[in-house]
Design a protein around this nucleic acid. Structure first.
Lengths: 211, 211
DNA sequence: TTAGGTCTGTGATAAATGTTACTGTAGGAT
DNA sequence: ATCCTACAGTAACATTTATCACAGACCTAA
């Protein structure tokens, strides 16, 4: 196997790894693919092996309000929760960097909860961390103004990729924050004047982001 | 036992009910009591037997941004998620109507997942429904303007209590929506002019709310 | 090189929301 | 009745965010 499951999911027991390899199906998706749509029934739990997947809420006007990103070693909490009841998805999932994922049929996801302690713990931890992340999002839109939200957004991005450059256009950022490009441009300009960022085309360098 | 667990939690198996009665501790709280604070470690899972508990996010300025209400037959998803890891709470829980709750120590909550199918299903369903509710909250603040949010807020209240009167002051509503009383007063007045509500002191009657 | 696209910057203006200040009213306590 | 307090209404103004309009910069393909 090209990508070792054991490396990406270090907490999984060996038997669990074997079971996943036997029963899951490994699939590749190109950037831009929509893995899950609002209102769609979910049939699989998704483990991320490679790439990056954006989980967002779609507005009527085409807004793509960012909830969080999924990276290797993570799983989609929504798909886990919904599969358990075979419910409709309430969110959208889009591949933003070419991805490899492990699809696990819903019956197994449920069955393993009882059989594999490490699976159970993984699922619970996934619920917890995603719930927390969504709560933080609520905090931001409920209590903070756009400039603070933008700073938080940039920080999340740099934390996620581990680098200090964010390669996005102002329009893309605006879409994910559900505001307009002009507002983002203006706020970024102010941040540049404060020495927080350096602006290039399609790229924002974060400078003193340790406050 | 004064309140029959079996009536309030009809899906629990008989053995589970017995186990809960043996191991849980029944406690009463007066309206106004804070059951859980942001940053506090959680030691128990809470099942609601009677009353109403408000789950909210606290702003720095004292805002009490409403996430959802817990009613009899429900449980606090956050406490379940956090107990599983013995993590800090990210939210506040306040009793808004005198409540009776069953406290379940964290080790048992975890143990029962393996031993009682009906407990497992209850926990999963709790996660799912709360996650969904929070997603709906995100939807509202991300995509809707204050007048729509206010309508949604009132509808949620009347749905929750099953009646068409909401007995809250404008100030209380404003606090939960993280806006100011003046804004709420203005918007309610407009709604009254549109024939959607009738305004009384400390009470809002919903009229044609079936749209 | 030129043409056409995307990305960015910025002013002018509009709309929504927040803030301040003040008024009146209802109800409870004395 | 009188006083006090919480609640509600509303005008004027400030601030934030959204929208419209347009110009210049950069990139790529022909």
């Amino acid at each position: 196997m090209q990508h070792s499951l054991k490396t990406i999911f270090p907490n999984f027991s060996n038997e669990l790894i074997t079971t996943i390899e036997e029963n899951g199906s490994l699939q590749d998706f190109e950037a831009g693919t929509i893995l899950m749509r609002t209102g769609q029934y979910i049939k699989n739990t998704v483990l991320i092996i490679k790439g990056k997947i954006k989980i967002y809420r779609e507005g009527e006007d085409g807004g793509e309000f960012l909830m969080y990103y999924l990276q290797p070693g993570q799983a989609c909490a929504i798909s886990m929760i919904c599969t358990a009841k075979s419910e409709k998805s309430q969110i959208m999932a889009k591949v933003v960097e070419d991805a490899t994922v492990m699809m696990i049929p819903l019956q197994l996801m449920d069955k393993w909860m009882m059989e594999h302690r490490s699976w159970y713990e993984f699922v619970i931890e996934t619920y917890r961390s995603r719930f927390e992340e969504v709560l933080e999002v609520v905090d931001n839109i409920a209590f903070r103004s756009m400039d603070e939200r933008l700073e938080f957004y940039l920080k999340r991005h740099s934390d996620a990729c581990g680098c200090s450059e964010v390669n996005l256009s102002h329009q893309e950022i605006a879409t994910e924050l559900n505001t307009s490009r002009e507002v983002v441009s203006r706020l970024l300009k102010k941040m540049e004047q404060r020495g927080l960022v350096k602006l290039n085309r399609n790229q924002i360098e974060l400078l003193n982001f340790n406050h």
